[in-house]
Design a protein around this nucleic acid. Structure first.
Lengths: 159, 159
DNA sequence: GTTTATTTGATTGTGTACAATTTAATTGGA
DNA sequence: TCCAATTAAATTGTACACAATCAAATAAAC
């Protein structure tokens, strides 16, 4: 029965039934994605800590360094995050002195996020981060580019 | 200066300096990974909700369906999660009736996580989930296999 | 112009995540 | 034996992440 098969694990996957094979952790693309994403986030932590940023905050700052001011909605679309995540995160960035939140004068429902001088200045210090992390990946550049393109394609199909 | 260059965005990346190019969101492997991981987790949600599982809980259950009982530490190593994450998650799985937490009689520091009958039974219902999700990815099988292998290789290098 | 629907953020509640600390149990050595 | 070092979970505090809901502002319909 199912119970004894689980409690008395065989050494190889072939010893299990077809249902068990499909549910093996190592066969899951989703788990490979989940684990790799978590590990990469952890690799960024020591690089971002001296800047006073968490990893999601770093993503928001990158979005703003590209174009600012932007509304909360625009940031959410760029990063695939909703207001329930962004609102407290942006308030922390405001407390840290990197951004200012300001109601749009044309449409009072919108909140424009703009960079402060400190927020702009942080960009120069952050400029070294991508190269520093790339070193830790030990992946050839073409593999990085290929992997990135595959993931962007996957994301496009799921959106 | 930096401020006006950021506040007056150019249309193409070539209009920006070298530092800005390295910090563009679309150039980040980490963001592609982060976004794809979040989107895949979201895609699982409607499939797992009828089973009464969240996505991380589904990962823990897969680990346990492979081998049980396992200690909290063993689960943490298999999933790259620490006790601060696993302890409350496992308590929720226990409340839901899928697992039982039991102190190891040999080493009282360890907590063995074992499956209940309901936990075992859930495996049959979960067996359809991987195929259901694979449909939504719209990716050929060899691409899925290749992407998974690349991500596992990346994770191995970061661990 | 008043009603209705939509849009935009904020809020609330639940559930991860992890660093740092604490507690209890075990192990190793003097 | 006894005690210092180590180990395993749990706890605490901070920070995402999202569903569901709410309130205010705007837009659309008539």
């Amino acid at each position: 029965m199912t119970k004894s098969a689980t409690q008395t694990p065989k050494t190889g996957p072939a010893a299990r039934g077809a249902a068990g094979e499909a549910l093996r952790l190592d066969n899951q693309l989703c788990f490979a994605l989940y684990a790799a994403s978590g590990l990469v986030t952890r690799a960024y932590r020591p690089l971002l800590e001296p800047l006073g940023l968490t990893y999601p905050q770093y993503l928001v700052m990158m979005a703003l360094w590209e174009r600012a001011p932007r509304t909360v909605k625009e940031l959410g679309q760029a990063l695939d995050l909703d207001s329930g995540t962004l609102t407290p995160l942006l308030k922390r960035l405001e407390t840290a002195g990197f951004v200012v939140r300001r109601r749009d004068s044309v449409d009072e429902r919108r909140v424009q996020i703009e960079l402060t001088e400190a927020g702009h200045a942080l960009r120069d210090r952050a400029a070294e981060v991508p190269a520093a992390l790339a070193c830790q990946l030990h992946l050839p550049l073409d593999e990085i580019v290929g992997l990135r393109a595959t993931l962007q394609d996957l994301a496009r199909k799921l959106r």
